[in-house]
Design a protein around this nucleic acid. Structure first.
Lengths: 343, 343
DNA sequence: GTGAAAGCGCTAACAC
DNA sequence: GTGTTAGCGCTTTCAC
């Protein structure tokens, strides 16, 4: 294999030579700064066209000390929650002429750290971070001290002060479970991510809170905590569904779990046999029969708000950190209103 | 508002001063290049730690003339097809220590061009591009001439030679429509993107081909071509469904159209009343009742292949351009097997 | 209106 | 083993 392609872009001095002017004059034309005679302007512009010159942003940024770059690190772009959030951040970045770097941590703290370092050493002014479980606070603190602003989205790292955009996970979860209870369910299964994932912990608390409010004892047998992407969960799910005193309703802790569970239920031939509420909306939740009742988050708004906060911060804003909690909305569609035995 | 935050990262010479050695020695430590005495090494590493030094990638890249950066430009990350593709590209890039820049063109040629320019001026060695309709070939040609490799994914720009990863759109579409015909349908509606979108044109050809093969006349009244994200399509859809000689089956040209149509059908109270096949799979297609028969693409493989091709190309490979056509798979789930009147 | 020189933070080439 | 010098492509400062 031969060596890497060396890019052969024309430089400013190439243009200057071609146009028979000094480098600085070209710079003036490119940056529309200072006065250039109409004639020189035309000559230089022609040379720029002809050579296909494009300013090297690295060199410019190196000299100016600014980068106009922000980063976004989430668990997985392929998750619809994050892909919608990403798109919203993209749009804000583009509108402000910022470059957006984004990457998936795959819920791996060391990969996440590697990405943060990569973005930071590329001069990102700030990073919107949905921290993977196990993220080292000391590392982040050093990053912040070095001048890279952090905005947490969806999750936080305890002990690190930063602007934050979160959903009210416990509240939403509590509302969803309470909704099931109101429809006559007392045996409600909970499926969620590892409790070490920030949102999962909060959502589990909400579940427990709702049970406690209704005077229902918490039963560990009804709870399953695992990454919904694992492929060895079927037995565990069946074990819960087939308990001696089985759940008459199910609460899914995120959209991945919802999809997984609905698929599993269908494979068991169970359509609409148990109450179902999921945290986070997903595509086709309204087309399934019955429609799936969810606690809907608003990932686009979460993305937009976090980008706004970050741009404000990297713009030099010094005010106290903001902690935004967005209330998710209960969207009633049918699956959560199936009557339980106590209805 | 005060000025932008100036990042206050320590530089190599800061570290050198702190450690009482020369800049070059620090460089040696950072790059693990050349010999450094154990003692000096320790001193320098301590200083690096203490000052929170991180090498400035811009300066390094400027000096070395390499960037190890690639770009990905697609229509919309929030579309599951592209988000899965993006994730695959990310993984390849990360594995090769490349930085990935990605952005959504929003199907807008000028936004797309702006993004290409932005990536290119940031030294991207190459770009994986799903070109928006109306992309200017001359512009791309200039970009390529300037040393930025292009790999087309999902779509091409006619007249531009480049490595290409496409689905067999016409073939897949033809297979899907033929499948409906085999189940007794002769009135089959087609809903797809504007024909100016590359994939939409190919898929429409496949539809026509299947009809022709079966000796069925093409009927313009059964065809609707529009961006499925528009919010004024309901009447047009109804007009087709309510034709005097109405379609007994529907072919959806992409996953967005499938979702849109299934939702529309449900709102009309029509579940499983017409045959349905969609191009491109989507989440929950298997959980709907009946399951939705689709022509499944493989966006992850498309992403991975295009990233492999691009990295090979930017690595200096000079062999002839490759044109990969991936055959989509017919996945039978029920909706496409509902019998038509001629079954 | 235009240009020459210095320097952003780093690495390459060559001393010592 | 370590240091010095030059220069990547650009902007800044100041001179003409």
């Amino acid at each position: 294999m031969s060596g890497p392609t060396t890019r052969t872009r024309a430089t400013m001095s190439d243009v200057a030579a071609a146009a028979g002017v000094s480098l600085k004059t070209v710079s003036r034309v490119v940056n529309q700064d200072g006065y250039v005679s109409a004639e020189t302007l035309a000559t230089v512009q022609e040379a720029i066209q002809r050579l296909g010159f494009r300013r090297n942003e690295f060199a410019r940024q190196l000299r100016q000390g600014t980068t106009a770059t922000i980063g976004l690190i989430m668990e997985d772009v392929a998750d619809p929650f994050y892909s919608v959030l990403t798109r919203a951040v993209e749009d804000v970045a583009l509108a402000h002429n910022y470059l957006l770097l984004s990457a998936s941590s795959n819920e791996d703290a060391s990969r996440s750290r590697q990405i943060v370092e990569s973005f930071s050493s590329r001069g990102a002014d700030g990073i919107i971070l949905a921290p993977a479980q196990g993220t080292d606070p000391a590392f982040l603190a050093a990053e912040i001290a070095a001048g890279c602003s952090i905005v947490f989205v969806d999750r936080i790292v305890p002990g690190i002060e930063a602007d934050t955009v979160l959903a009210d996970n416990a509240g939403g979860s509590c509302e969803g479970v309470t909704h099931l209870i109101a429809h006559g369910h007392r045996r409600i299964a909970f499926f969620g991510d590892d409790a070490s994932v920030f949102t999962a912990g909060e959502r589990l608390s909400g579940y427990r809170l709702a049970l406690a409010d209704a005077g229902i004892a918490f039963d560990d047998d009804l709870v399953m905590l695992a990454a919904p992407t694992r492929d060895d969960l079927e037995d565990g799910i069946d074990r819960i569904l087939d308990l001696e005193d089985p759940p008459t309703a199910i609460f899914a802790g995120n959209n991945r779990w919802s999809v997984r569970l609905l698929r599993h239920l269908k494979s068991r031939g169970e359509i609409a046999t148990r109450g179902f509420v999921g945290f986070d909306d997903f595509e086709l939740s309204d087309v399934l029969e019955p429609g799936v009742t969810v606690i809907a988050q608003d990932p686009a708004t979460m993305g937009q708000l976090s980008a706004d906060l970050l741009l404000r911060r990297v713009g030099g804003d010094r005010r106290a950190f903001e902690q935004v909690r967005l209330s998710p909305r209960l969207v009633v569609r049918g699956s959560g209103e199936l009557p339980g035995p106590h209805a």
